[in-house]
Amino acid sequence: MNVFRLTGDLSHLAAIIILLLKIWKSRSCAGISGKSQILFAIVFTTRYLDLLTSFISIYNTSMKVIYIGCAYATVYLIYMKFRATYDGNHDSFRVEFLVVPVGGLAVLVNHDFSFLEILWTFSIYLESVAILPQLFMISKTGEAETITTHYLFCLGLYRALYLLNWIWRFYFESFFDMIAIVAGVVQTVLYCDFFYLYITKVLKGKKLSLPA
């Protein structure tokens, strides 16, 4: 464990909690892509199947359980409890265009051709693009609530911090995972445009709105 990994995990946790609280407090999931949240639930489920096969640490196990629980709670709030507020018309990204190629890539490019390993690889690839339906939704409506931008910032920051963690581990632990690194770079790059808007607009007290 190093400082980048810990702050990355906490940033990830903050993002998940911010989103849950935003939906719960406002009793609404307006502006939130249910499709992205389903993809994240799939990501956690396929990656954390190793909860059943290997134990790493109490920290590792409890964070995994919290992430999975929160992901399903979020999906439940969007599609069941506050379904009436879900903006399905604007959540029109075709997720099969992500899931199918990512599934194919996971079968072709992995560390080991075994069931759990392919699911792990699938989850890494899928996570890197899972935010696209949400970003697509924002580009379609042209705006996002400020609390939603805080969520996105924490979620993007998490993988950026993990990149620093992998550099650290490369030098100090001889740890090198090409699949995670390439996917992590892709994931972080997808947020760059958003990071720019967040810093130049939201942090200066303005609402995030895109030019028409």
Binding site: R5, D9, H12, D50, I56, N60, M63, K64, Y67, H111, W120, Y162, N165, F170, S174, F175, F176, D177, M178, A180
Partner: peptide
């Protein structure tokens, strides 16, 4: 130097 990977992250 020998490099390895393991799935010990979140």
């Amino acid at each position: 130097r020998e490099f390895t990977y393991q799935h010990d992250e979140l």
